[in-house]
Design a protein around this nucleic acid. Sequence first.
DNA 1: AGGGGAAAGTCATCAGATGAATCCTGGCCG
DNA 2: CGGCCAGGATTCATCTGATGACTTTCCCCT
Lengths: 244, 244
Amino acid sequence: MSAVDKAFHGLRHMIATGRLGAGERIPPEAELGEELGVSRGSLREAVRMLAALGVIEPRHGSGTYVSQLRPEDIIGSLSLTLELLPLPGLLEVYEIRRVLEAHVAAKAAARRTPETVKTLFSLIEAMEATDDPAEASELDHRFHAEIARAAENPTLASLLAVFRARSRKYQVFTLPEGPELRRKSDADHRVLATAIADRDPGSAAGAAEAHVTQTERWLRAFMPPVEEGAQGREKSGEADGALS
Amino acid sequence: MSAVDKAFHGLRHMIATGRLGAGERIPPEAELGEELGVSRGSLREAVRMLAALGVIEPRHGSGTYVSQLRPEDIIGSLSLTLELLPLPGLLEVYEIRRVLEAHVAAKAAARRTPETVKTLFSLIEAMEATDDPAEASELDHRFHAEIARAAENPTLASLLAVFRARSRKYQVFTLPEGPELRRKSDADHRVLATAIADRDPGSAAGAAEAHVTQTERWLRAFMPPVEEGAQGREKSGEADGALS
DNA sequence: AGGGGAAAGTCATCAGATGAATCCTGGCCG
DNA sequence: CGGCCAGGATTCATCTGATGACTTTCCCCT
């Protein structure tokens, strides 16, 4: 096993076994390097790996600390790399997003509070009022994040946040067709928010799924034309059909 | 911005913009370090970060290559860290898994081939025949992986594989109650496989969801007793109810 | 008691040298 | 002519030592 691997797995093991707890400061580089039997340089590379994965967090001048190890810490590490996905992979992500958005919408409808409903509709009004595509995108994100929050599963909420961040990079609202898409999107939001307000999980799930499907369709239509054939990975016609 | 950050984002940008394509070899450390304006050591730390995230892959003596950037490459980076999640977070993961397993089961039922059905039942028979908990766990994994494969979404399949790997660490089958749990699990599998064989998406989804829920229940029952109260994060009674 | 500054502790970065693995090239032999 | 093999070139892996930057702590002075 290489030196960096030794340091990486050694450090990870110390965290997994609880010898280093969440939030705790790990020993200084020199000390830990000696204990693990690697040089400071190799240890630092292992530390950077765990930092990239959201497990630890070095602070210049202070020390290196184990993160809180909350699911969103771990999930968040995807946000830096998910945008490197080529388009075909992105469409697979959309299918996951569709299923999960439908789920959180249904759960949010079952558990909603009056505050949630109030927040959702005020976000909708702000969305309908603005002309700035960037602001609209931001409000759209907050709208969906609020629904995810109401579903009371922070892990799921952060996973969906990562997926949405990836989609937002394409900025469909800035296209010539933007205003039209915006109106359609706003209408979707009203249907979804109304279903949640009515405590109707089935309708909420359907509205959320339709909304994501619509977004996906725009992406397929307006984005990279995908070179013809020879890819062998495209499905035939129908999208899915089953479930939910 | 720090030197490592400069190297990290610079390198990521080169990949995002296509200057470095999937599978391509990146310039040697000395050369790239000079171009990015950082020392070899700092560049190496940035390279390790991207490697931990599944974006690039250094090969000793040969060079450092951009990965294929397939979704499973990116998702796979979670497998090293997801097992560090404490139990409360794991239960949130289970909810996601439940929803997604139900989805892939339904989709598999709609798209199944005779070969898939044959494979599923042969795995079931192998599971029922073995006494080795480790082998049973391995076969269980392959059973669910086969269903995910039939759903024709590699990203989703690899995500579920990561989730399952996390659960397997607990090795419930090695408990005193193991044999009993195994029989129940086997029965679940037969119901699920039968629904898929019958091309019945609804039943398949229900069976998959019930199976995951059952597994989750075992984990709650037999694992770390979770210190009483004071946590404030536990839900009341009902699990979910809506959707699927 | 409070403020300021020095000192210690720790991570960040760089430079240079050496080892290890792989790849390539050219010559040798069958 | 083709295959094998040895040696050099290329590249990543690791270590060592030194210096800079940032944070925290603590003590002294007011």
